[in-house]
Design a protein around this nucleic acid. Sequence first.
DNA 1: TCGAAAGTGGGAAAAAGTGGGAAAGAGTAG
DNA 2: CTACTCTTTCCCACTTTTTCCCACTTTCGA
Lengths: 146, 146
Amino acid sequence: MITGEFRYSLDEKNRLMIPARIRVEIPGNSIILTRGVEQCLWLFTHEEWKKVCQSLVGSTSLFQEKARLMQRRIVAPAQETEVDRTGRIIIPPTLREFAGLKKECIILGIQSYLEIWDEGSYTAYLAENESRFKEAAEEIGNKIAL
Amino acid sequence: MITGEFRYSLDEKNRLMIPARIRVEIPGNSIILTRGVEQCLWLFTHEEWKKVCQSLVGSTSLFQEKARLMQRRIVAPAQETEVDRTGRIIIPPTLREFAGLKKECIILGIQSYLEIWDEGSYTAYLAENESRFKEAAEEIGNKIAL
DNA sequence: TCGAAAGTGGGAAAAAGTGGGAAAGAGTAG
DNA sequence: CTACTCTTTCCCACTTTTTCCCACTTTCGA
């Protein structure tokens, strides 16, 4: 997809705007929505989702506890959502609650997928992790000349 | 790009002038804008941005915490911005807020990239870090013969 | 002092975003 | 089984924002 950080608000029908810039990159007007690792939602194109699934399902077994956990936590909650003709998607209730979406939401474009955060949670997440981020940045600085 | 320290003000449409001297060095009239490590924005040419992305994204996974942090903090906020025919760029709202840009801005040219600071923040940053700067200067002095 | 280049402000057209109404569908009670 | 209600979905029309462009002002150098 594409990158960018956008703020949109959830309306009273639980609809959320997908930024026009990002929308044009979504093939077929439909997208897969699931739980993210942190308190956010992940959105994938069908193609990307296939890759995620294959790497999760393909390399694991029904008879391994950790594998089942990953399946339940990432694969199971996934739902396909249509982008309506004005560019909005409907966030299913269980996913909305999981991500704690209230009104103001942040949409992140991270190249091959998107994330949706509640604005408050996202701000808190970044604040909590700022020092960790700076450490990681230093590390990269030591490895790479940029 | 080129070096230099310039002061321009953000107009009421969130447009910021790119100094003519620097502008001529930007290929293709379009530039990548993202969050910097401190409270400022970083601007890269496409070519430079590609390098940054590769060093961040290249060898990482969706399922690694530190990788996600770096992606969210540096890669996700990135947006491509056109330089209009009078030489201005539009600063997207989320980036403007992050950098705390009010009116007067400082543009720094640092060879391979640019930085945009709010004038107040920049002055404060320099003042706060003057002693650390002197330490850093000593350290470098020990490594380099100049 | 004049000309050219750089910078500023603002208007108009186009695009993007928002709210809400109506139709369709599901669920429930009589 | 039917009728009523509530929810969901789809679409339209209005509003706001963005983008593009023009013209004026200022600055700098000759």
